[in-house]
Design a protein around this nucleic acid. Sequence first.
RNA 1: GGAGAGAUGGCCGAGUAUGGUUGAAGGCGCUCGACUCGAAAUCGAGUAGGCGGUUAAUCCCCGCCUCCAGGGUUCGAAUCCCUGUCUCUCCGCCA
Length: 430
Amino acid sequence: MLDAKMVRAQPEMIETALRNRNQIGLLENFLTLDNQRRTLLVEAEEIKKFRNEASQEVGRQMKQGLTSDDLVDRVRQAGQKIKELDQKLNEVESAIENIMLNLPNIPDASVPVGANEESNRVVRRWGEPRQFEFEPQAHWDIGPDQGILDFERAAKLSGARYTVYKGLGARLERAIINFYLDTHVYQHGYEEIFPPFLVNRECMVGTGQLPKFAEDMFKIEGRELYLVPTAEVPLTNLYREEILEEKNLPRYMVAYTACFRAEAGSHGRDTRGVIRQHQFNKVELVKIVLPDQSFEELETMTQDAEKVLQLLGLPYRVVLLSTGDMGFSSAKTYDIEVWMPSYNDYKEISSCSNCLDFQARRTNIRYRPASKEKIRFVHTLNGSGVAVGRTVAAILENYQQEDGSVVIPTVLRPYMGGLEQIGQVQSRVD
RNA sequence: GGAGAGAUGGCCGAGUAUGGUUGAAGGCGCUCGACUCGAAAUCGAGUAGGCGGUUAAUCCCCGCCUCCAGGGUUCGAAUCCCUGUCUCUCCGCCA
């Protein structure tokens, strides 16, 4: 959520920023509603002041045994008027809130302006895409061939866009999760969290999934509970409605969760393999930091995410998203894209965002400065560290051998019981 | 699932049977000051958040709101009534 005072003070600036995000005309009603709100508020407050003073006077009079029916009557009428004004005020305020909750964050000045991903800027690359001396296969072929991914039986259980991992495939998934968690906890200093996978509506509003993107989420029938689309939601909301001490900042958290997305509006995209699923695993990083440190923290968080790909030996590039391609809550986002031979292109495997105080306002997470200044909103950041299913796909494709087997990256071998490759040596049961 | 208890400031905890100057006693913590070579102890002072008015303005000053949330009763609600949420205890069930 944006600062209403800022929107009021410089609507042109906000309007421009929104246009860069392909959002037009959202501010029109805000200014008039905002004026209405203050008029009503001042009027209601005046009458409330009268009521407070007068009812105290009534109390004094009653103690002395003399009551003024006239005064009592006037206070009663004031009460009626207050009720009316408060009701109007409520309507205006919920209309304002409705606008505010649907306004995306303002892109940072360093973000390239553009309508879509074509304006994204590649900021660096790591590793060289491998030159294959044979025709490389896609992971959606390698997986079933090796008996480690089963899309057909997954469809029998749950439908399209689900995957069953079997044998060493399941173990590989689990190994990657552990490798990511261990790296971020023991090398990068994040606190490991294991949160619920179901969260309430307030959490979803807090991080910005709701109210605007309800169709992307799975909701539990008959309850106000949602399956988490990313661990960003529970992690960021951990400190909702809290005032943190400055000495306890920054907070670095990492969590593995399954993630659930209805992916409405993405039909026909990435239909093969594990790239776009309704359920997938992800290790997520979240930082809660002091306002003047958030951009620095975004850089280090992105590097933390890159590190695991480097350790896995997977070539990637880092892309600064343009204004038109950024997520709703973000002011600045780096995507990390891993080399995917089946696409003959880089494919998103992580997204690292600085949300500034946008989510902090929605979740009301603040901190008390050590210097006794006023309480302020924290800044929040989140980044994938990184998507697990896409890592499996990248490993299968980048480490495949001509005979169909797949070499296991050395850093994962301790997590795989020392196993050096998948395929050939293992016994399979179809 | 059944029965009961509870939710008050950064924390603990009074106030709720008898509604009124209680944004809220007391304690802890914290900040500043005194004492001290310094520290501890002691003593003194201060210490909620939000919204709005005013203002060049963060400061002051003034007002309104907030004692889990939402309704209601009343001239007036932390206190009375209703609904909801959450927490705790006991019983049952369960991985």
